[in-house]
């Protein structure tokens, strides 16, 4: 088995297991509390408005927005880690059909693995630093790595067979 296939299959299985572990710990220790907090903040915002306490209502609404911002990204990171991992395993099984030299295949595989690991990580880190430009840039670059890797893979599939 070539190095590029090993990288994709082993990396994919490891990333899938990591994504699932992350989802499990989130479901066990964070999710229910976060959902309660999110619903509670929105309810509190309306209740405060009913009591004509508009400052408290606005503060609770902002809290709702922040909590939802975090929740959406936590769930997105979990699903993207596992989804991208599955794609890597599939590609790993057929990567010998990508008609490039093994050196280029390894570069493409590394691009896919690095992008798949870093993209969800950048999403999660945004929950600690809302709107940080550096983390947004990391998310853009890492997703670009995955898209570039997949485009190269599709091109490799389409290229005529050579002895390479």
């Amino acid at each position: 088995m070539t190095g590029s296939r090993k990288l994709l299959i082993f990396g994919g299985i490891a990333l899938a297991a990591f994504g699932m572990l992350y989802g499990l710990q989130y479901a066990l220790f964070v999710e229910h509390q976060t959902l309660d907090h999110m619903g509670g903040s929105l309810a509190q915002s309306f209740a405060a408005a009913a009591s004509r306490n508009l400052a408290q209502s606005q503060a609770a609404l902002e809290q709702y927005g922040d909590t939802k911002y975090d929740y959406v990204r936590q769930v997105d990171a979990h699903s993207h880690w596992i989804g991208l991992a599955m794609l890597m395993i599939v590609l790993g099984v057929i990567f010998q059909r990508v008609n490039f030299s093994e050196g280029i295949r390894q570069l493409v595989a590394f691009s896919l693995l690095a992008g798949s690991a870093l993209f969800p990580l950048a999403i999660i880190l945004q929950t600690y630093h809302h709107g940080a430009m550096g983390l947004k840039a990391l998310a853009v670059v890492s997703s670009g790595l995955v898209i570039a890797g997949l485009t190269a893979t599709a091109w490799g599939f389409a290229r005529p067979r050579t002895a390479a």
Partner: peptide, 10 residues
């Protein structure tokens, strides 16, 4: 102005 009803709805 009914905060209790708000909580019920939510």
């Amino acid at each position: 102005g009914n905060a209790a009803a708000v909580n019920d709805v939510f």
